[in-house]
Design a protein around this nucleic acid. Sequence first.
DNA 1: AAAAAATGTTAAACTAGTTTAATATTTATG
DNA 2: CATAAATATTAAACTAGTTTAACATTTTTT
Lengths: 198, 198
Amino acid sequence: MVDKKKAQNLLNYIGKYVILTPEEELSLLSHISYRKYLKGQYIIQQGDVCKYECFVISGCTKMFHMDHLGQEHIIMFAIEDWWTSDMGSFISQTEADFNVQCVENTELIMFHRDIIEKLYEEIPKLERFFRQIVERALVASQKRIVRSFSLTARERYLFFKNQYPEIEQRIPQYMIASYLGITKEFLSKIKSQITLNS
Amino acid sequence: MVDKKKAQNLLNYIGKYVILTPEEELSLLSHISYRKYLKGQYIIQQGDVCKYECFVISGCTKMFHMDHLGQEHIIMFAIEDWWTSDMGSFISQTEADFNVQCVENTELIMFHRDIIEKLYEEIPKLERFFRQIVERALVASQKRIVRSFSLTARERYLFFKNQYPEIEQRIPQYMIASYLGITKEFLSKIKSQITLNS
DNA sequence: AAAAAATGTTAAACTAGTTTAATATTTATG
DNA sequence: CATAAATATTAAACTAGTTTAACATTTTTT
């Protein structure tokens, strides 16, 4: 049973999509788990099978793919009130393509695969909730593809900085470069050009 | 009421995820609509509000964003047994960022927004079905992002050709170039290099 | 079957972003 | 507080992919 205080962010978040009764809330709390990770620790490792969907209570994670040349490609960050997982591995219980690693000390609420299935049966509202969450994630992902094709590196950086100012502050620049799909050297150049022009 | 024959592909497809009773199937058929479009026609236009999720019975569509320079960026194609929509516009009833246009004469089954909500209430299995569909779409989208960052244009082309050989045959090359995020001239060069080396 | 429209090819000049490598700056640690 | 480790900057040489423009081929229309 997760302490209600620790899960308050999650409950508020769910409350934006569906209204749970006190009993449903209690049942939810009894099925999920809370865990702390330290900066640098892996929540999911490429090659493992992913058993959890994770909600970030505090801290920051990066989800990335390591390619055959050993290069990291960051797909997303997750801070307070974001979800992270390797959905592909989670839904088909196959080897994960992605790593999720903590960029800061991080507190999570974790939904185990088997338990989430039971929760869908017991509280259909939660299935609605997750459907909506995933729909939004898909929209964000498609828009990211468009930006990667239609914007220059400079424009993508400015978009990111504008859309996620908190993240831009908390994360080393070389990770932002990886997220933008460019080298850290080129991001450095872009930033120096921007400061000159202002 | 959609003729069961016309919806057979859809019913088979849904059957891979959830089992509907004959009554549920009937109710479903009575709520969806069937429509034919001609090559070149738009199912969704950027700027409009998207009211439908569409299942392709036959034909082929492209979903693309037109940027401020008038350039098309193709996000996905949809052939038989695929879904297409502008999910962002559909879920929040805001102006669509994407166009969906027919590349061939196309037959669709269309799920209206208001009706899909009612169907979720009436047949919770359908909510499960759509949750799973969207989860898969998200996985595909995230993998596409990885490929756009970690592979060269040549590798992306070979991947596409290998993964979707049917689509590669049916679609003009310049659209494939757009899907891959490169110019048609460069794709032409890639293809000539590949044929030389084999 | 001719003309027009759409699609595909080739090649040269160009540019956005990479690579390499050296140095500077900031942050963490004994 | 000194040293190491991690992060960021700069610049020159380079390359993957773009641009432009002219031409070739295929498909559609009359």
